[in-house]
Design a protein around this nucleic acid. Structure first.
Lengths: 335, 335
DNA sequence: AACCTCTTCCAAAACGTTTCGGATGACATT
DNA sequence: AATGTCATCCGAAACGTTTTGGAAGAGGTT
């Protein structure tokens, strides 16, 4: 039933033996182990997690801390990430808890409460920033953590990231190859590493191809993309291609383009990043890039478990390639 | 420091007194309480959650079980729901854990593991279905739960829902009022209660206004909306208005409309539901409906806590009004 | 002085698990 | 017959908290 004691009593064995039988120690006779396992099965015995956590000093919980900014939060990406991470953790008997923490002066308080209250064994940090006090803090106190995304942080830490630099470099060169001579980049706030990397890749491609390359930065939302594209298109010689940091920005940019009577994919090329569901159904369909989000979630889970086990974060860095998805908004090669 | 024992030793008090001082019992002298609180503050004492959970028999965890179907999962709604629910629970010292469970024969296994392992104090069930074995199971074993969305379930249970029936009734009447005589409804799978209610509201409006009203059902995704709209528009006399169960479907429908050379908002009116971020930036902007998702999350949290406290679910039912957001895709009144 | 009331404190048990350090026999070895 | 080895098993401690059921003393009342 509910406790090891009851199970032991029922079997005429000691608590110790039952416990060790269930945990598969070599310490117990095969016949006994089977008897115990059978009894556990029929009575539906489940170890009390609070008790085992107390005794083992582990919570069997990994926590993902999500940035709570309303605008930046509602990206479909995260839900898929949560799903894949949670599933992988569950395979190991771990639970995934979720907390929201607003970036700002009180951000670390949330982490402290979590850690000092021993409410979690490891933390998954998402939406990393170039200067990220969270990585500093977690490293200093030696608490196991894994980051989704990189940071300008000198000490070794575990992370999984997409190769946004290469992806945006390649995408920009692709646009140049199609004949575009004025290419604009709608950048996300460069405090975020992902935004910085994508911008760097774009800038490198512009240097490589000897094109000017303009950049306008705004928030990584539809509204931000709309504003940034507005600025971009108000110029005397507006760009003929817009490389956008995210699909959300690209969808916003599309509206700005339409309002000026231009047709995306014909008058102006547009590329996004993330492959959100709406991207395939915009008008025209949005060319975009996709990173393997489910695999990323699984790797984050595995790394978190490894860090809990004491593994060295030095060996736990992974940068995944990003897949380019050409769609109508990319347009054709131009004369 | 880390334990009550150390704190007590340091203060020359018993563990009991320190514990009771921290919990605010009237049992301890004011001076002592303040001394204890001060010491707890400076040493940064945090109670060990596993120990308190074991002793109190509560996990201080609420679990949200998300449907893991890839297509249905990535709705931005859920992330906002998670955020608001989690924040409200955190105010009460509760954590929110998340697990994914595929609907199907093994779905209840996930619930059983959760409950029998005492890994959670309450469950939040989302995306309810008309016939929902989960509600039956949870009610039968008397486990505290709260549903987001209703179900055809005879016994009392706690839920928060939007009034999709009224919303779709009103939206359909609004279309009729604009002069539309052939109105189509792109329905989501009617096994889901939300889909059934929206469809019922639509059907009632058709009866009220004496219009035929056609319905095509498909999955609640962009692809589903695209297919359903294709069927709808292939008819001899296609509808002049499409009321879609979700924004995702509506965005898919828009593509089908475009491909037939029609212009949404001029040749055909389109309405969605959810107000996903992309809806305001589609071409034309998508008229939609919005339910107060953050408030819903908070209420779910509060109800879950109340259920844990033993409150009767009978009094815990809440149906919120849905706000209509007219946008360009609604079009003008027609001669 | 005896009794009662109140305030303030505390010892010890309990929650259910894991694990340390043996105990008990059976059997083989010397 | 003493010793050693091996396979099984178990008692008891420990994890850190909450809570029960008082104890000790101060002060008031009769």
């Amino acid at each position: 039933m509910s406790s090891l004691r009851e199970l032991a009593q029922m079997l005429g064995l000691s608590i110790t033996t039952v416990s060790r039988a269930l945990d598969g120690y070599g310490d117990v006779a095969v016949a006994t182990r089977e008897r115990v396992l059978a009894a556990a099965e029929t009575t539906g015995y489940r170890p009390n997690s609070a008790a085992r956590r107390l005794r083992r000093g582990l919570t069997e919980i990994v926590t993902m801390v999500l940035p709570a900014e309303p605008g930046h939060f509602n990206e479909p990406l995260y839900i898929e990430l949560l799903r894949s991470t949670g599933e992988r953790l569950a395979q190991q008997g771990y639970d995934l808890t979720l907390i929201a923490a607003l970036p700002g002066p009180d951000e670390l308080k949330t982490y402290r409460r979590l850690i000092e209250g021993r409410r979690t064994d490891a933390i998954i940090v998402v939406r990393t920033r170039r200067e990220d006090a969270r990585l500093r803090y977690l490293t200093d106190i030696g608490f196991p953590f894994v980051a989704m995304g990189r940071s300008d942080f000198s000490e070794p830490y575990a992370y999984v990231d997409g190769d946004g630099e290469a992806a945006f470099h390649d995408a920009a060169l692709r646009l140049a190859g199609l004949g575009h001579r004025r290419i604009g980049h709608l950048a996300a706030p460069s405090a975020f590493t992902f935004a910085h990397l994508r911008r760097s890749g774009f800038a490198r491609a512009m240097r490589d191809s000897g094109l000017p390359g303009e950049i306008v930065e705004d928030s990584a939302t539809e509204a931000g993309g709309y504003r940034a594209a507005g600025v971009m298109l108000a110029q005397a010689e507006p760009p003929s291609a817009l490389l956008c940091a995210t699909d959300s920005m690209a969808l916003g940019a599309m509206r700005a383009v339409r309002e000026r009577g231009l047709v995306a994919g014909r008058d102006i090329a547009i590329i996004g990043h993330d492959n959100i569901p709406a991207a395939a159904f915009s008008d025209p369909a949005l060319a975009t890039m996709e990173l393997p989000i489910a695999a990323t979630g699984r790797r984050l889970a595995e790394m978190a478990l490894a860090r809990i086990g004491g593994a060295d974060p030095r060996d736990m860095t992974e940068i995944n390639p990003v897949e380019f998805l050409p769609r109508a908004s990319l347009g054709e090669a131009r004369g």
